[in-house]
């Protein structure tokens, strides 16, 4: 724990700001019902009301409070993206480590499959799958997690490959430890650092990805408050010189910038690079 604190203290200013912003977003997301002045879906005014004391950021296209929806949007958008990345890491990470240990045919077969899945842009596959399975939140999470797990698989496999050839893994296997034990106790602790940085990168990617899908009307469906679809619903306001629809977009950008700053620092730490 003390090393973590020490690392944090020596972190560059951008990483510190990033961490602060991420924490702020997390607090807003967790305590949304207590912070938001109105409820997520209730219609409290007429449509497109201007910014006022009653509605700080005005109201949206059907008269719901913009600020409240922004706050609930944090919970929905971030929550769904987070669940997706966790699922992607469970699928990709475990398969990657497993394949690194098993090697041989498994490695070849799954490796080829992943190559082919990665040969096509994930947005295209996602759109195809969403056409077929429909746009519900569970299918959204599963589809994107499966598509994104290919990237996690790559990283986990190549990182685990370097660990698996070590003597201590061989010793553990000779000792007769089970596969799951070897993965958990020998491999995983040694590849945590690159996986953690990758987690941040994947989160950014998935977060933007889901926001884009929602913006296209194919992601999180109304009336759930979600930043991507909020931009879409209120986009016409832009033409009247009103920046309200940019607020949810800025909220998205703010979080990804913050996470990227933290990840940049973590990559720096784990690669041992010092400014060159």
């Amino acid at each position: 724990m003390t090393t973590a604190v020490k690392a944090l203290r020596s972190a560059p200013i951008s990483a510190k700001i990033g961490l602060l912003i991420v924490t702020a977003y997390a607090i807003v997301a967790i305590f949304a019902p207590w912070i938001a002045p109105y409820s997520e879906t209730s219609i409290v005014g007429s449509s497109y009301e201007l910014w006022s004391d009653e509605f700080i950021f005005g109201t949206d296209n059907i008269g719901r409070d913009m600020l409240s929806r922004l706050i609930y949007g944090a919970r929905n958008t971030i929550g769904i993206a987070f669940a997706t990345v966790v699922l992607a890491f469970l699928i990709g990470g475990i398969t990657g480590m497993l394949v690194a240990i098993l090697g041989g045919w498994y490695d070849l077969l799954i490796g080829r499959l992943v190559d082919i899945l990665m040969a096509v842009p994930s947005l295209i596959f996602a759109l195809l799958l969403l056409t077929i399975f429909g746009t519900s939140i569970p299918s959204l999470i599963v589809i994107i997690a499966v598509l994104d797990s290919t990237r996690v698989f790559r990283i986990a496999r190549s990182a685990a490959m370097n660990v698996v050839v070590m003597d201590f893994v061989e010793v553990a296997q000779l000792r007769g430890e089970r596969m799951w034990w070897v993965i958990r106790k020998e491999v995983l602790p040694n590849i945590t650092a690159p996986l953690l940085a990758e987690f941040g990168l994947r989160f950014c990617f998935v977060f933007l990805f889901i926001a884009s899908l929602s913006f296209l009307g194919l992601g999180i469906q109304p009336p759930t408050a979600d930043w991507g679809s909020m931009v879409r619903e209120n986009a016409t306001l832009i033409n009247y010189n009103d920046i309200t629809p940019l607020l949810p977009a800025a909220a998205i950008a703010g979080l990804t910038v913050a996470v990227n700053f933290v990840v940049d620092w973590m990559l720096h730490l784990s690669s041992g690079l010092r400014n060159d």
């Binding site: 951008s14 950014c204 933007l208 926001a211 884009s212 913006f215 991507g228 931009v231 986009a235 832009i238 033409n239 009247y240 010189n241 920046i243 629809p245 940019l246 977009a249 800025a250 998205i252 950008a253 990804t256 910038v257 996470v259 990227n260 700053f261 940049d264």
Partner: peptide, 24 residues
């Protein structure tokens, strides 16, 4: 800094900012 920031922007954010300034 600038590139790290712009990588993090969703495409539609960039698009609407450009619309706001260059069109509206």
């Amino acid at each position: 800094m600038a590139t790290l920031t712009s990588i993090s922007f969703p495409e539609f954010f960039v698009a609407y900012i450009l619309i706001l300034f260059f069109s509206v």
